[in-house]
Amino acid sequence: MAADVETVIVRNDIAELPAVYAALEAFAGTVGLTDAVRRTLLLVVEELFSNTVSYGYPDGGKDEIEVSAALGPDHVELTLADRALPFDSSAPPAGPAEVDDLDAMGIGGLGLFLVHQFADTVVTERTGGVNRTRVLLPTRPD
């Protein structure tokens, strides 16, 4: 089952995002994800990775972030592990305000909201200074 798992370790730098994408694109190709699931996987990792890199290191500390994807019977399990400031991604944020007016539209917290909308499960655990966020993305059709 080794082929059904992909892991990449990168620096806590947004410039590393293409390396994360490349690993997950390879995983998607190997396990035969549909385009829809592949896109969701890439969107979710982008939101989580960019959140961590943007807000998790206010003092500019260096870190390595481990990103892995594994194929389950009816889901993809995406895991990010880092030593950033504690942050609980499992708390579902409020959705966008119900507005139909451009001026009233805001996007604060939208990234994590999207993650929760697409995922069946979002769990963050912190052990020994390591944040480990695990996301289950359904692979079955709705």
């Binding site: 969701t40 539209m105 999207l114």
Partner: peptide
């Protein structure tokens, strides 16, 4: 717009604006 992008626009409320 592909279906994935459409879904994001819908979920985020952007189809209204």
């Amino acid at each position: 717009v592909n279906p994935s992008v459409y879904e994001v626009l819908k979920i985020s409320g952007f189809l209204k604006i």
